[in-house]
Design a protein around this nucleic acid. Structure first.
Length: 269
DNA sequence: AGCTCATGGCGAG
DNA sequence: TCGCCCTGAGCTG
């Protein structure tokens, strides 16, 4: 269940765990058996994330390209790896730790050129130092597509998913159905800056928290609540509940095949 | 036990 | 725009 912040965390955790000693690489499920054999016993030399794509670079030059999709996930553990339970596409292990990958959309070896092609088709990632927000602005400012859809388009912006999309638009009071070309440069700069801040927090926390201190249930004198996805948010998956700020019912609709959530009162800009 | 839905994305049509 | 990929959590019963 990953947006970009989780992938960046996985890059860090893989590097920390498998960057010093050779890793045994296998595919208990068998679907990645051939690829696993090619990198088995190598040291992880480099780990990098771009948006929701994870790249693990091994010492002999191969890149392991992983995309978790909607329900893929990594599990890390210490000590010897237990007998595989269920379908484990990829297992990395050394003497002290192991990592299991289940249900990824993509788990494949890439050459440097193939990896470059993936970067080429992705937009700037707010979590990367080399990100150029102007590249996203050029597309947004020319587009008649809604800003809600543009923020989810990985060619425009990499790493933002449905939660960050809904939350950043709420935090800036931007109506989600506005065409990209109707945003001002100042609005875009504010969206980018907020994504950088929110997603950096997300990397540190391992969850998405977007509610400002003055709007927490405690600060507003309301009973505390628990979100199913682990973080505290304004509108994501809060359909028909009252807006934390103004009390209006949070609205939802299917928008470009994804669920969109927004507050029609707070988001009129 | 079975059903639905999900923080994603691809390819067919 | 739809179906599919293929996993797990949270319901219902």
């Amino acid at each position: 269940m990953p947006e970009g912040h989780i992938i960046h965390r996985l890059a860090i955790e893989n590097a920390r765990t498998f960057g010093l000693r050779p890793a045994r690489v296998s595919s208990p499920q068998g679907r990645f058996a051939d690829g696993a054999k090619l990198i088995d016993g190598q040291i992880l030399a480099e780990a990098e994330a771009h948006g929701k794509h994870l790249f693990l670079g091994f010492e002999e030059g191969a890149w392991l390209h992983i995309h978790l999709g909607l329900y893929g996930g990594f599990t890390f553990g210490t000590g010897p790896a237990p007998d595989p339970v269920g379908l484990i596409r990829l297992r990395l292990e050394n003497d002290g730790a192991y990592a299991d990958l289940r249900g990824p959309n993509t788990c494949a070896l890439r050459t440097s050129a193939e990896k470059a092609a993936v970067h080429q088709r992705l937009g700037p990632d707010p979590l990367r130092q080399d990100a150029d927000p102007d590249a996203a602005w050029r597309r947004i400012s020319r587009s008649g597509t809604t800003i809600a859809a543009l923020l989810m388009d990985q060619k425009v912006l990499a790493g933002v998913g449905n939660v960050y999309r809904a939350e950043v638009l709420f935090r800036l009071g931007i109506a989600p159905h506005r065409p990209g070309r109707e945003l001002s440069r100042a609005e875009w700069d504010a969206v980018w800056a907020d994504l950088v801040a929110l997603m950096r927090d997300g990397v540190g926390a391992g969850r998405i928290d977007t509610v400002r201190p003055e709007h927490t249930p405690e600060a507003m004198g309301r009973p505390p609540r628990v979100d199913g996805h682990g973080g505290e948010v304004y509108v994501y998956r809060r359909a028909a509940m009252s807006c934390l700020v103004c009390g209006t019912e949070v609205r939802t609709e299917t928008h470009a095949a994804r669920n969109l959530f927004w507050c029609p009162t707070c988001q009129q800009r």
